[in-house]
Design a protein around this nucleic acid. Structure first.
Length: 932
DNA sequence: AATGACGTTTTTTTT
DNA sequence: AAACGTCATT
């Protein structure tokens, strides 16, 4: 596709920016490139601005890729374009959250619950969350849901109830009441979960579109959707669920152009609510739909394409759109490229796979038509499983042969010896294990750099377990205790025993543990200390092991050259020259139906949900999954099966048998052809690097701290005043936004503004009051000094994004852009703590803001101000300096190179730097020591 | 038709 | 910090 020649249907899809479009894109059809071209075509029209376009993707990763492609097409076809950051390319969740936090002031302060924090919240407040008031019907008997045990099912029930098309008259009253009390709890604790951010956004859009008595911000949103949203594009449309479809309908309500892209044969998330009928009946539901089929497969050899086609044909023609998939790539099929093999047991199977991976090394492979062949390497091979739990034999064999691999989708963090050592810290504190047990665990993990420090560690733990020493619950901060424990041991990257690789791996694990603490403490921060630590240990023992994935080398920006072991689900959208699909055993793939309590029918009756049966899954869903697996292969495809020991594990899967019946497949291995081997060279993929303002600040300050925080995942302890700065920010944002809408707030609203925006969930009552008073004073002061300028607001909270170099972008928000009485334009950044910072860094930050404004508007700002909201704080007002701006580009680009090279050196003398309190114990002690 | 062993997935979504 | 449905076997 580098030559940028398109097929007739691709051309049609790119050119038609006016019809309601339905693109049926088969596997490997170059859909992302087509979308990028189409978006560029849209932007090239007179009168169209980037802000008129919304493109939804399924994942953040897909969004980053599409964004990068759009930018590169725009650069080459239109040249410089401004305001590209105004175009939304991202997930629907991201869009909804953004919408709420831009237009609904009451929600500015809301935080977002992840799966884990949501589960923790539901369990902690098991009654108020509706968990234990909800019941399940098992064989006609109604029993209440149980704390911890049924939480998972309850969470799914909550999302089905809210995201699907539900007939509530068929839902039992207790279930509806539980949902109500969960929603109240979320509201009370000021949280969104992944469901409520969608539901609330759709509700809000609906109200704005149907009612007349609107507030100023509601009017702004209505006008925005009516006048600004002109093109809506939805990728992976086959995986859209009912609430997402409702969102799309709302956005095109005033006639915006809609283009959906998908392949019904690749619907693999039905168990999560994906509704295939959205794509199948699309042409009936929208008027004047033009359907274009992107049938050419540019990815795979003829053999793979033909096999894929026959797999898809196993589906009932009534449940799929009739379509073709045509071989159109340069990959040639040779007899023996596709094998279906049977082995005596799983070990033989694993041995063969490992051997074939070795044999493939250096095999010539051509990535693109006309390109020079390269030798295949580890990362060109993938082993795909229905469930990655079946991967043990393959994993062992690859380890044995020292073949590098990364495994995705296995929650194994808590199997690691390092993590068990960390868990031990808290088990010791709670008296569950003895000091010598603890010592044994740390010895097992080979993690004690200096045995003389052991007594220090014990002292820290004993002190931490003394719950009588203070009445302030905030004293018993788990994260701080963890960091203190590591410090007591003297455990830092430089002191971890072993080589550099092991040191890095251990730091990743310890960082992940820090993340687990943050998750727990976000919910349990204000519990009585002894009960909190007790609950934490239970969390570590029972819940956490099933949740956290082991960190691998994939965590950073550096792509390792390693064999990929993955589930089929995670492989969607990816491709490899060689794909293995082992373990094709009856009952595994296709996976046999599941027992146990299910949301449908045990909590919600099947007939209460439109097409509720889809959550159960069936043979069609498994077939589509197998179709996805097969079509990942570019050339070599090896499916295999081996019987297991136990009964019921002896038979081959019907998918395996299907493959053996294909004339493109061989059922015996005749060896690879005698091609001359080349030097194995992994496909070079420069990862896109997207950094936010705040991350950049850390990078400039101290690259090693950046690595600790954002790559290893270490989190600072929760501060009790957390939320104060954000509250001020949000109050100011509302003031400026209302001013923009012509609804200028007056100084007597200060108190109300603070009430609405200040949320300090971790503060004890006295602190909370104190923060409240301080906030009201700060807002009063702002009205006093700047109230008259409110009408001069140009933008509030403006999202900006700067492409520094190809593949490197920096994004963030500018607090305020306003015009001055002097007729100059100023960029304003609010500061709310008097924390002193390196003068240099602040100037860098200012330069980024200036750059961002230029990118946004095409014009340059005149002044940059830092406005300190504190009473005594220092503010600044500087000119925009062109030489500074040129310098910053250079600086960011070099920082990006460091990220790509995994090079995060710290030049600081941390002992002299107050800003690094939190993680100072993990900083290298040697670095910068020579500095005065 | 009744019994008992067996296994119990998949995973995205925010700063 | 459990109990259920499914499937193979009899």
């Amino acid at each position: 596709m580098s030559a940028l020649t398109f097929t007739a249907s691709q051309e049609a899809a790119i050119d038609d920016v006016d019809s309601t479009l339905q693109l049926i894109a088969c596997a490997g059809s170059g859909k992302t490139q087509v979308l990028a071209q189409r978006i560029a075509r849209i932007l090239a029209q007179p009168g169209v601005r980037p802000g008129n376009v919304i493109a939804f993707t399924f994942t953040e990763k897909a969004a980053a890729e599409l964004k990068e492609r759009v930018h590169s097409v725009v650069r080459s076809e239109i040249g410089e374009a401004t305001g590209l950051a105004e175009m939304f390319i991202g997930t629907m969740h991201g869009y909804c959250l953004d919408l709420l936090q831009t237009y609904v002031p009451e929600t500015f302060k809301y935080g977002v619950l992840t799966d884990i924090t949501q589960q923790l919240l539901i369990d902690r407040e098991s009654r108020r969350s509706g968990l234990t008031t909800c019941t399940k019907m098992v064989q006609g008997v109604e029993t209440p849901l149980k704390r911890y045990l049924d939480t998972r099912t309850y969470r799914t029930a909550l999302s089905v109830l809210q995201e699907d098309d539900v007939d509530f008259s068929r839902v039992r009253d207790v279930v509806i009441e539980s949902l109500g009390s969960y929603r109240e709890l979320l509201d009370y604790r000021k949280y969104f979960d992944y469901t409520s951010m969608m539901v609330d956004a759709v509700e809000f859009l609906k109200r704005v579109q149907q009612q007349d008595d609107l507030t100023s911000s509601e009017r702004v949103l209505r006008d925005h959707v009516r006048d600004e949203v002109r093109y809506v594009i939805v990728d992976e449309y086959q995986d859209v669920n009912p609430i997402q479809e409702r969102l799309v309908e709302r956005l095109v309500h005033y006639g915006a152009n809609l283009c959906v892209v998908g392949d019904d044969d690749q619907t693999i998330y039905q168990w999560r609510g994906s509704e295939v009928s959205n794509i199948i009946t699309f042409a009936n539901r929208y008027a004047d739909v033009r359907t274009i089929e992107l049938a050419e497969n540019f990815r795979s050899s003829k053999g793979v394409v033909e096999l894929g086609r026959t797999v898809a044909q196993r589906l009932n023609s009534s449940e799929r759109l009739s379509k073709k998939m045509l071989y159109a790539s340069h990959q040639e099929w040779h007899r023996g490229d596709l094998l279906a093999l049977q082995f005596g047991d799983v070990h033989e199977e694993a041995e063969w796979i490992a051997q074939r991976i070795l044999d493939l090394q250096g095999m010539p492979f051509v990535d693109k038509p006309g390109a020079a062949p390269r030798g295949l390497s580890w990362s060109d091979c993938a082993v795909l499983f229905r469930s990655v739990k079946d991967a043990d034999a393959v994993v062992d064999e690859l380890k044995r042969r020292k073949i590098p691999f990364i495994i995705k989708g296995l929650a194994r963090l808590f199997d690691a010896a390092e993590i068990q050592a960390c868990v031990g810290l808290f088990e010791y504190m709670m008296g569950e294990i003895s000091a010598s047990d603890l010592r044994a665990r740390w010895d097992l993990a080979a993690l004690i750099p200096d045995a003389s420090r052991w007594a220090k560690l014990i002292a820290v733990l004993d002190d931490g377990a003394d719950f009588g020493k203070s009445d302030r619950w905030g004293t018993y901060n788990i994260q701080r205790l963890y960091l203190k424990a590591l410090e007591a041991l003297g455990l830092r990257e430089e002191t971890v025993p072993g080589d550099a690789r092991r040191r890095e791996l251990v730091m990743y694990q310890l960082g992940k543990f820090s993340q687990a603490i943050s998750d727990f403490e976000a919910i349990h921060f204000s519990s009585a200390p002894d009960r909190k630590y007790e609950a934490f240990v239970k969390f570590l023992q029972f819940q956490a092991p099933g949740v956290y994935e082991e960190s691998d080398e994939d965590a950073g920006y550096v792509q390792p050259d390693a064999v990929v072991i993955s589930t089929v689900h995670r492989a969607k959208g990816l491709q490899w020259p060689a794909v293995f699909i082992p373990f094709l055993r009856q009952g595994r793939f296709p996976m046999r139906g599941m027992g146990g309590v299910q949301v449908i029918p045990h909590i919600i009756a099947e007939d209460a949900v439109a097409n509720g049966a889809r959550y159960k899954g069936g043979i069609s869903d498994e077939t589509r999954l197998f179709y996805v697996a097969v079509t990942r292969a570019q050339k070599y495809l090896y499916v295999s099966y081996a019987p297991g020991e136990k009964r019921g594990q002896g038979k081959a899967s019907e998918f395996y048998l299907h493959c053996t019946a294909s004339s493109w497949m061989s059922t015996s291995d005749e060896g690879l052809p005698d091609a001359e081997r080349l030097e194995p060279t992994p496909k070079l993929e420069t990862p896109n690097i997207a950094i936010s303002f705040s991350e950049l600040k850390y990078l400039f300050d101290c690259p090693y701290q950046f690595k600790l925080r954002f790559m290893y995942g270490f989190n600072p302890p929760i501060h009790e005043a957390l939320g104060y700065g954000k509250g001020l920010h949000d109050a100011l944002a509302e003031m400026h936004k209302r001013a923009l809408a012509g609804d200028v707030p007056s100084s007597d609203e200060a108190e109300a503004l603070v009430d609405r925006h200040l949320h300090t969930p971790y503060a004890y009552p006295a602190l909370r009051e104190q923060l409240h008073r301080a906030a009201v004073e700060a807002i009063d002061r702002y009205f006093d000094r700047h109230g008259g300028d409110l009408t001069l607001t140009i933008h509030s909270e403006k999202q900006i994004s700067v492409d520094i170099a190809p593949g490197v972008s920096v994004s963030g928000r500018i607090d305020l852009i306003k015009s001055l009485e002097t007729d100059e334009t100023a960029i304003v950044d609010f500061k709310s703590t008097a924390r002193s910072q390196d003068e240099d860094v602040t100037r860098d930050q200012l330069a980024i803001y200036a750059l961002g404004y230029e990118e946004l508007s095409g014009a340059s700002a005149d002044r940059i101000q830092i406005l300190n909201l504190d009473d005594q704080g220092k503010s600044t007002n500087d000119p925009v300096d062109p030489s500074l701006i040129a310098g910053i580009k250079q600086k960011v680009a070099s920082v990006a190179d460091d990220i790509r090279a995994n090079h995060f050196v710290c030049m600081h003398d941390h002992s002299a730097d107050g800003a690094f309190d939190d993680l100072v114990g993990l900083m290298p002690t040697g670095a910068g020591a020579g500095k005065s």
